[in-house]
Design a protein around this nucleic acid. Structure first.
Lengths: 212, 212
DNA sequence: TGGAAATATGTACTGAGTACAAAAATCGTG
DNA sequence: CACGATTTTTGTACTCAGTACATATTTCCA
């Protein structure tokens, strides 16, 4: 994330952030469906059209950092150490993100407000599902690329779908544990326990392929 | 599906069917986004409000048979033969549906028009994903119930998510094969090959639980 | 400093979905 | 069969997301 030096990019970024911050705050306060785009624009002190200029849909003001996730997944597979299978690299990534307290799998006071905000809105849930599927497609293609297979390789798509499904269930369960116990370590443990289970299944499913 | 005998129910069903049929036809012809609710109402010869009376959202006029899928999944687990593990019952269900040429996994001229219709619309894809997640939740609860565990059992949710993910990938791959080879047997084989792979993974992931 | 390019904003529109009320069809019962 | 209750259909009026298009404003660069 290199801070761009020219004023134009800096201002654009500042405007985006103002909109996204205002929107996220309002969504957490009142729920996605009880906030209008006009109110977001008002709170961010911009015109209504500026919101749509930066974010094609209302829900994009909330989910505006999925590109970072894409980058992480791609890099984990491409920059993996020699001798590490593609799926193993992704499994290691999950463990590393937890160990490094990465924001994407963070269980904190903030995530405790964010998750119910998503859960409380069909639109936000739909967008979360869409992103999950987009990530699965990306992982599938990255896996296939890593072993020189066709991007449509069914095995790669099965592996990617199973992986994302596992991580999603693991994240939601860990969040549930965190809410119940208010203990980050418990949540991390629950997350990794399910991730490991899923990885074991994935390994078995992909036996005989170069992905594992 | 007992045909109700009273006129009221019959008429209501007929109206629903007229709307759903008209909508599906128009969506296939022109694409979901290029059909308005007014046009659906016009084609079904009802008032616009009648459409929303029968179907809360426009996309529900297309996906109006998901309850049957729910019923199948529930029954497969609940009515399983003694000695058959819950997940095994669901695996057998997949094979049975293919063997019996059930409409839900049918690869035909009709499905060849339906699938691209969904693929061509973000709204229909979103609804398909939502249904998939709803089915996964249902399967998770049914599995947990079958072994006397809490409905929120993480293992049940992981198993259900992996199962639905597998079936989805298998269905889409089989459809791709059918389009390419125009041979239903090829599609069935591709479907079952991936379902079996997923089942192998699922079995490994769930080792030590009563689900397998 | 004078445009060129990018960004911000306004106006006017389409179309989904909701709230509410009223009309029409159907049903149960005396 | 008739009449009141219930269900279904339909119309009207509204909110709000999202789009098309034009204009103004800001930033940049030669």
């Amino acid at each position: 994330m290199p801070e761009p030096s020219d004023r134009r990019s800096r201002k654009r970024l500042a405007t985006s952030k103002a909109i996204s911050d205002a929107a996220t705050r309002l969504f957490m306060e009142r729920g996605f469906d009880h906030v209008t785009v006009d109110e977001i624009a008002e709170a961010a002190d911009v015109g209504r059209m500026t919101v749509f200029n930066h974010f094609p849909r209302k829900e994009d003001t909330f989910f505006d950092r999925d590109e970072e996730g894409r980058e992480m997944l791609r890099e984990a597979v491409r920059q993996r150490a020699t001798g590490v299978a593609p799926l193993e690299a992704l499994h290691l990534l999950a463990h590393r993100l937890v160990a490094e307290r990465s924001p994407v799998v963070e269980f904190s006071a903030r995530s405790e407000r964010l998750v119910p905000t998503v859960a409380g809105s069909e639109t936000l849930k739909a967008r979360a599902r869409a992103i999950r599927d987009e990530l699965a497609d990306l992982v599938a293609e990255t896996l296939a690329e890593a072993v020189g297979h066709d991007p449509a390789d069914p095995d790669a798509h099965l592996a990617a779908s199973l992986l994302l499904a596992t991580w999603t269930v693991a994240f939601l369960d860990a969040h549930r544990i965190f809410r119940r116990t208010r203990n980050r370590e418990n949540a991390n443990d629950a997350f990794l326990a399910l991730v490991d289970k899923g990885a074991a299944g994935l390994k078995a499913a992909m036996t005989g392929t170069p992905y594992v």
